[in-house]
Design a protein around this nucleic acid. Sequence first.
RNA 1: GCCGGGAUGGCGGAACUGGCAGACGCAGCGGACUUAAAAUCCGCCGGAGAGAUCCUUGUGGGUUCGAGUCCCACUCCCGGCACCA
Length: 818
Amino acid sequence: MAPKFNPLEIDKKWQQKWADDRLYEVSEYSPRPKYYALTMFPYTSGDLHIGHWYAMAPSDVHARFRRMQGYNVLHPMGFDSFGLNAENAAINRGIHPYTWTMQNIDNMRRQLKSIGAIYDWSREVITSLPEYYKWTQWFFLKLYENDLAYRGKAPVNWCPKCQTVLANEQVVNGGCERCGTAVSQQDLEQWFFRITRYAEELIQHDGIDWPERTKIMQRNWVGKSTGAEISFALDHPGVEEKEIRVFTTRPDTTFGVTFMVLAPEHPLVARFTTPDNKAEVEEYIAKSRRQTEIERLSTEKEKDGVFTGAYVINRLNGEKVPVWIADYVLLSYGTGAVMAVPAHDERDFAFAKKYGIPIRVVISPPEWQGEELAEAYIEPGTMVNSAQFNGTPSQEGIGAVADYLAEKGWGGHAVTYRLRDWLISRQRYWGAPIPMVYCEKCGIVPVPEEDLPVLLPEDAQFKPTGESPLTYHEGFVNTTCPQCSAPAKRETDTMDTFVCSSWYFLRYVSPHYDTAAFEPDKMKYWLPVDIYTGGAEHTVMHLLYVRFFTKAIRDMGLIDFGEPVTRLFHQGHIIAERRKMSKSRGNVVNPDEYVTDLGVDAVRTYFMFLGPWEQGGEWDDSGLSGISRWLNRIWNLVLDDYNQRSGSDPSGISEAERELSRFTHQTIRKVTTDLERLRFNVMVAALMELTNYLTKVKEDGRIGRPAWDEAVETLILLLAPSIPHLAEELWQQIGNEYSVHNQDWPLWDEELAREDEITLVVQVNGKLRDRIAVPASITEAEAKEQALGSERVKTYLQGKETVKTIYVPGKLVNIVVR
RNA sequence: GCCGGGAUGGCGGAACUGGCAGACGCAGCGGACUUAAAAUCCGCCGGAGAGAUCCUUGUGGGUUCGAGUCCCACUCCCGGCACCA
């Protein structure tokens, strides 16, 4: 009898040994092909819950599998550690953000180590340390140099509770992503990254293996619209501008324009509103400013607006068009002005009805007789009331009108994107300071590279004032101009944490390199990332930003690839009590207690077995015991003595061995392809089946000792990525050389995996009637003959006429009768 | 409203490219071992029926020799976007 299986002792023993031997440290100097397996690094919000483990354990299994397959695998880990959480802790509990963050990291690192992953801890990256954020600042300077970072006044999303600006992506249902508080609009001077310059490239995903839905979501987020820009003539006393340009996807409806609408914030409004309308217009602007994003975006809300008293001319037909303002027009999209065609746009229709503005049909619906429309007609049709374009199908008209506009110099074909520039300023302390200086003489001056990093002062005061503690820190703010040496002020905003995480995958290749953000040779060796796994919630933020960064620095010549990640995979969410786990809901499950109870291998395996990785699932620990039992069975299977039954029939033995090798090789094939496709749940099931099969084989005792030993070794090798601790222990116990994790992944032999005998399914009219064991080499004629010869089948053929017989090789015969 | 994804036993799920529905595990039931329990091992385990057999993959239709898988319509659930001109 084997000694009792003690998973906790085994976990401890091998984690210690692997660490001592630096088994998982990787270097660039390897003859093996490289494989960069990246898992999204965690945000340092406290401790890890099983959601993190669900992201990390299966990805480690995949990385270990690649390692055994002969790849030189880089599987790094680090901490995304700037951000609001730490600062709020400072305000609420009086702990310095640095201290709080480092405590969290210590705890999270301990938890991560207990997973038993192949993380190379010598490459750990912490974004909030100067040795890292120095390079975040350096990238900022590079973007600035290349006109991809700029400062501008903009209406921004402001969270009154967090007292900071939010990116569009951080506004969820009109509320703050973090605290849910309604977001309001404020005009502030802010730093932006010109991500829109890459809009076109960001909707291309050629040559990368990403989930279809992620690509679609990114495309939708970028929101490309094709149409035309049209100039409307403006002639207003005292206004310089002689035109207002609008963007439209429907230039074919331009003859139907009966009014124009500007966003209330549009700069022209104040200048051309006539005295009669001034009071009303100002009141409307004030009202829409007061509204929160939630109110303003409510689709329930009836569209309203006010007339400015100003007019423009529709150049296509010379008509005077009244100009209104309404808050359903957004300043930030297109030109902040729209031409309104009530006959062919639902919103314009409702607006025109409400204010008694004429509705003129210019696209004829089928069988239209000139009657009034009951609702906007937005489908294609034939152009009418459109001068020389009458009779043109509207879809042709789109291009024809745009061409005509271009010819006349009144506009032309145009493309607009929904994507806006990335606002990166945060009025907060715990972030990478933006390395800029304001000089009275020289204006905005970048901090010279050699002066980086701009360090966060340690002695800041944390008060909930709405401004960054940096603003009050005289020692930080007051500096000298790098150009003229006159007294100057530092920028006190810090960068959005998403800036830090936009390039961390580059830092892992040379985390301690201090003369550049990354060592070029090592970057060339490791990148791009071969597989990146993480949650789908990062699709339109992190994953878009990472691609933008990569393309931007490619164009600077720093790297020579444009896509950071070759293959992307999203694991699903672990939920508890039917909801996503979160601290505020109090349904967070901590993995530590399970690990100290059952051992880490059981927990790792349970995450894989739960269901398809991309689907996630409910955390239900009742299934864990099944995994534990299985590990125990493996232990006994491998370590209890094998007794070959003497006096067995020699021919029987060889047949049993043939069966065993077939089963083993089929399992190798299945486990290998499942691991390649990250189908962990069925991989575990296949390993359980092999275990069950070996248990039976062992009882029968008909296998020769060498064949048995070989089968057991294969089982252990196949288990090694999933249950690294137990596999290592068993590998040693059966007398093999350390370490199982340095062994080659088993290869299957198609010849050995092939079935000699198959079960031929016989159907009559598509219904299962018999199963016949036949040789795999059976011919079509033989199969049909056997099928027709079956007694069970014959009873269903009695008195019937056979219409045809379908044969699917190796599978079935279907006899169709009438 | 628009764009994705999904629905299979009591439960989690399996089923390659249209070919044996329910692999594997959990729970349950029965048995062995035990003074007993736990642990372990063996067996049963979608529904109806005495049985032959029939029914069964959210609902309704269709294509096909054959549909969980393909097509059409619908219901519900999850995720994303939401006045984008």
